[in-house]
Structure formats: C-alpha cells, structure tokens
Amino acid sequence: MSDLLQTLINTLALGGLYALIALGYTLVYGILRFINFAHSDIVAWGGWLAFTIASGLGFLSGAPGFAMPLVMLITMAICAAMGVTIELLAYRPLRKAPRLNVLITAIGVSLFLQNVGMNDKLFGTRPTTIVPMMPNTELFSIGKVPVRLYDVLTIVLALVLVVALERLVYRTKMGRAMRAVSFDERVASLMGINVNVVVSVTFALGSALAAAGGILFALRNDLRLTSDSTWVLLGLKAFVAAVVGGIGNVRGAAVGALLIAFVEVFVHFYITRFFSGTEWVGKLQDVYVFMILIAVLMWKPSGLFGKSTVEKV
C-alpha cells in the first residue's frame, strides 16, 4: 500500500514536470505547426541560469525562504525573453517557408544553445547541483510514506501553472487570439489579430514554463552540461507526452504528461522488482519513449484530444 502511494506521488511529480515542458511544445506546435527542437535546450538553460543566479546571489550556501521563488521568477523571465528573441531572429523570417526549413533551423538553434552553453565562459562542462539552495526536506508523511518538498513543489507548481495557462487560453482575449491563430493564421490576421504578438506571447509562455521545468528537474538530478543527453531525453519525453495528449491541445499535454509519467514510474518499478541485475534495462528506459511515440503515431497520430485536420486538396 505504501509502495502504491509512493509510486502515485512519484507519478504526479514526474507528470507535473513533464507537463510544464510539454506545454511549450504543444503551444508552439498549435500555433506554428512545427516541433521546436530547441525547446529542450531552453529547459537546460533554465536549470543552469538558476544555478548561476543562485550562486551569484550567494544562495548556495544558506538561503532564505524567498530564495527559490525569486530565482525561479528571474530565470523564467530571462528564458521567456530568450524564447521571444529566438523566435524573432530564427523562426519569424521562415514563417512562410516550407516546414522542413524551419525544422532545420530549429536544429541549428538547438545546437547553438547546447554548444554555447557548454562554453567555459558560460556554464561549463562539469556537472554540479542546485540542491544546496533548497534541500529536499520532508514536509510530512502519510503513513510510512514521506512527502518531500520537491514533490510538493513540483505538483503544486505544475498544477498552478497548468490551470493558469488553461484559463489564459480559454478565458482571455489573448487566449482567444491564440486559438484563432492556431486554427487559421490567415483568417485570424484578417480579423485584426496581430499574429506576431500572439506568436511572441506563445514563445514567452512556453519558454517560461520550460525554465520552471528545468529548475525542478535540476533539483532532482545533477545539473549536467547543456549538451548532455539527459536534457534531450527530458525534452523528448515531454514531446511524446504532448503528442499522446494530442499536440496543439493544452489539456491534452497535461493528460499526456501524466500518462507518460505513469508508464515510466510503473514500468521502472516493476522491472526493478522482477528483473534485477539487468543493466540493459536502464539503457532501455531511454528508448522506450521512442517506442511509445511510434506506437501512437501509427495508431492515433492525433493523440487523445487532438482532432485530425484534413488538408484541402
């Protein structure tokens, strides 16, 4: 029973993490119809920027209560600005170009962020950790299961941000504009919507959420260099979550994230239970997510909540 509870908590926390990142993918895809390859690199930069700011402000050796929220807000703001800038410089000129071209550009941006981030003048290549700023204290326990700060923080933050985003997309004027642009960009602009502003806002939001995700991830894992595959893998899992939920759909991204987290946690749990001593299982964890993606794309490419749109011939 306590195992189940622990697994449930893990699933919710992991799902929350994936949801934050998946939302960035799904929002951008909904508006511009392309997979932002560079999104996972914003996540990485989020983690590293937080570390840099925290160490700069001296938070890594004893931090006051407001340290984490402050650092998080600053990082999210910086990443939001980064996202907007990248869109402006690299993607906007290609708004009318074939999708393939933007994809290649996105790969270029991704490589750029990775390699610049690795530079010693910036983040360097040695793994480090952000944990000292806010150690994972146990808050309370349910029965024998400890409920720790990181889990609570992740779940609460993810919940708050997802709900906030949902309200934004479905209940505000900007949200309506976003949905209009994602439905039909040309008609939306004919209706007086400033598409450029909508796109910038989308990137800002997605990048800010990615930053939050990066920080939360950094708390639970070592902060590895920006070109490390952990970030790529994280981004990939979040992307698959977005696809499973129906890419372009905000609620779908959240549900998809929970599903992917569920699979990961439960599969890991049972594999370690029943197949001990298999090193290769760990490696296989990296690829199972591709298999899920292929399965989804084969059977229901529009995902759970997406609608399959028909191309006009």
Binding site: R33, D184, R186, P301, S302, V310, E311, K312
Partner: peptide, 8 residues
C-alpha cells in the same frame, strides 16, 4: 487563393 494547408 487557397486556404492555408492544415494537415494531420
């Protein structure tokens, strides 16, 4: 002119 392409 044509509507923008909206593909699956």
């Amino acid at each position: 002119g044509p509507l923008p392409e909206v593909a699956p």
